[in-house]
Amino acid sequence: MSRQPEKLLYAPSHEWVETASEGGDVIATIGISAFAIEQLTDLVYMDLPKVGGKVSAGQEFGEVESVKAVSPLYSPVDGEIVAVHSDLPNQLDDLKEDPYDFGWILKVKLSDEAALAKLLDHAAYSKRCGESA
């Protein structure tokens, strides 16, 4: 099953979010948008958090390096990390090729859904990217 970028939500800081109900919880899957990956160009390093950690909307959860520039990754949601794509830092070329399926980074069990309302739909996000490009 492929994720369709048009159906995802986006943070202005370029993380994408897909939500799904699992056993009564809402689980958010998080990745980096294709636009952001294109802007970053050659990713060489990525640091990710551990399962069990907490994230808050707008707070850093990881870091990436490209072209000698270190950039933070920001969580778009609040909750507990229930899965981390731990192979990803060793397969950054594949992330570039497939940011929406292979390139998932975290799964977060939401503690509060309020942050979702602040995210952008695909049209609004694309418009924003077009303005900043």
Binding site: S13, K68, A69, V70, S71, P72, Y74
Partner: peptide, 9 residues
């Protein structure tokens, strides 16, 4: 000469 960067919000 070489340079490097760090970005934050």
């Amino acid at each position: 000469l070489g340079s490097a960067q760090r970005k934050e919000r």
